[in-house]
Design a binder for these strands. Structure first.
Length: 510
RNA sequence: GAUCGCUUAGCUCAGCUGGUAGAGCAACGCCCUUUUAAGGCGUGGGUCCUGGGUUCGAACCCCAGAGCGAUCACCA
């Protein structure tokens, strides 16, 4: 807390005290019987309509226009703003006019929560308005809100915003203010919620079960990333915050479930930027007796359904470009993509040849890279930038995919795809590796990489191998980054815009 | 992690070659019963991000640091 209060904060504290002196509790305990939301009144009220003779609303007082014995004000509730008409003799019908003259005009401030009862009418100017008969203080605000005003420009018809609250640091650190003051921000989070709801419905309708698996794991596996580490005191053992939940979900398939999915937080101790937050939300789903071709059809149905639910159509606009999410999505094997966009056929090349290709194409790589990472580097540099429209990139190098099944016909590749939309990876799926001996060898290869200094290599998970030894049916698995999908559907370029409280450095002084 | 940029009133921002800080909105006071970023008149409000330095004098120049943003690298 700052030890010096601003003039405005001092004034609000004085107002708080004066309310108490008038026997008005600025923080009353009793429930307030809200009957209507601002948005519902604005959409359904017409002049003379029935059912609006007595309404009761609550929210923040956002603006006052005082004109002597009558005033207009704006109330902001969870649905939006509505205008209030408050006249002195209506809310203070007796001799004592202090509720209007003192409480409303002097002691209330922008940001205070109030409750109003009254009837709805339309003003001369055509604004749907609540004529207030009763005013109640519900909660006093003692810190001034940023004031954002908007006006419709008469010439252009465009909405003009004044004093917008735009500083990203303040918006993210004090998201509550961002939400109060910038109405569009709520829209991103509404869509986020819809996306997740639609996803659950899609899976539940097909009979797959939502499950929960450990966030604290003794062995971190299922992805290539650096974990957060922690320590359990009673067990005196190190634990890792999960970077993925893949290996636990597959254990459940071993246990006999046909389909399991989890939507939850993953944690990766890596860099942060406009597409990375240390904790992010992922969907993972595993379905028995399926393969990655089946999973391509499932994913395009899922994404298409979510898009239609959220936007009402199959097309989205991202950064000024049109993207069609109509089915089916294009399928492009990775090596074929490299041939198409980089003009090189790298099939069967060894490390030397791949290094030469990188040099020829002016792609910077670490000389310690193995085959897989070299191919990935070429792909990222030459193919990814072209993947605006939804595209399944299929058949990845085996070195990059220690949990995916070997390709049924192609040597050195696995049955894996990544779905790219707007040049970003949105989904990642395999025909899951269920051969326990192959899996053990793949882990051993990862251990070698770790020994060579790859700090993202996977650790051996002996219990997972043991589970596979008991037998896992052929299974297809999928992961989708929810935050990225929401960014796509809300046309946002920063992950911070779709996460309520993005990670930030410690605030120096509050 | 690297490079560049930003940080001034509650909010959005001015502030010239260094001369002792300003506007609009918000706040406070007065006027005003259907207004529309209401209007009119008046008043107050500042750790100029922090810490050093140069100078008679620093919001401004120099050094160090912090936070945020953009680009790049790694990753979803």
């Amino acid at each position: 807390m700052q030890n010096t209060l601003s003039e405005q904060e001092l004034i609000r504290r004085e107002s708080l005290q004066k309310l108490r002196e008038l026997n008005i509790d600025p923080y009353p305990a009793a429930l307030y019987p809200v009957s209507h939301l601002a948005a519902d009144i604005k959409t359904s009220y017409e002049d003379g309509a029935e059912g609006f003779e007595e309404v009761c609303l609550a929210g923040r007082l956002m603006m006052r226009r005082i004109m002597g014995k009558a005033s207009f004000a704006e109330l902001l509730d969870s649905s939006g703003r509505i205008q209030l008409y408050i006249s002195r003799d209506d809310i203070s019908p007796d001799e004592d006019k202090s509720l209007y003259n003192t409480v409303f005009k002097k002691l209330l401030d922008i940001g205070d929560f109030i409750g109003v009862k009254g009837f709805v009418f339309t003003t001369r100017v055509g604004e749907t308005t609540v004529h207030v008969k009763e005013l109640t203080v519900l909660s006093k605000s003692i810190k001034p809100l940023p004031i954002v005003k908007t006006r419709i420009d008469e010439e252009t018809g465009q909405e003009v915003t004044y004093d917008a609250f735009t500083d990203p640091e303040l918006r993210y650190r004090q998201r509550y203010l961002d939400l109060v003051v910038n109405p569009n921000v709520k829209q991103h989070f509404t869509i986020r919620s819809q996306v997740i709801r639609e996803m659950r419905k899609f899976f539940d309708d097909r009979g797959w079960m939502e499950v929960e698996t450990p966030v604290l794991q003794p062995v971190h596996g299922g992805a290539a990333a650096r974990p957060f580490t922690t320590h359990h005191n009673a067990l005196d053992m190190p634990l890792f915050m999960r970077i993925a939940n893949e290996l636990y979900l597959k254990r459940l398939i071993v246990g006999g479930y046909d389909g399991v999915y989890e939507i939850g937080k993953m944690f990766r101790n890596e860099g942060m930027d406009r597409t990375h937050n240390p904790e992010f939300t992922a969907l993972e789903i595993y379905v028995a007796y399926k393969d990655y071709f089946w999973m391509m059809e499932m994913v395009e149905q899922l994404i298409n359904a979510i898009c239609r639910q959220v936007t009402g159509g199959e097309n989205i606009e991202v950064g000024g470009e049109q993207i069609s999410l109509a089915m089916p999505f294009r399928r492009l094997p990775m090596l074929q993509g490299i041939e198409e966009y980089a003009g090189v056929n790298i099939k069967g090349m060894d490390i030397e040849a791949l290094l030469q290709v990188c040099q020829d194409l002016d792609i910077e790589v670490d000389p310690k890279y193995g085959k897989g990472k070299l191919i990935d580097a070429i792909f990222a540099a030459k193919v990814e930038p072209h993947l605006l429209q939804p595209t399944y990139i299929t058949d990845y190098p085996i070195e990059l995919s220690p949990l995916a099944k070997k390709h049924r016909t192609e040597e050195g590749l696995v049955e894996r795809y990544e779905l790219f939309i707007n040049r970003q990876e949105i989904a990642n799926a395999y025909s899951e590796l269920n051969d326990p001996i192959d899996q053990r060898e793949r882990f051993e290869d990862q251990l070698k990489l770790a020994a060579e200094g790859d700090d993202e290599a996977m650790a051996m998970d002996l219990d997972f191998v043991r589970a596979l030894e008991y037998g896992m049916p052929p299974t297809s698995g999928l992961g989708i980054g929810i935050d990225r999908l929401v960014m796509l559907l809300t046309n946002q370029t920063s992950i911070q815009e779709v996460i309520f409280f993005p990670q930030m450095k410690k605030e120096v002084r509050i």
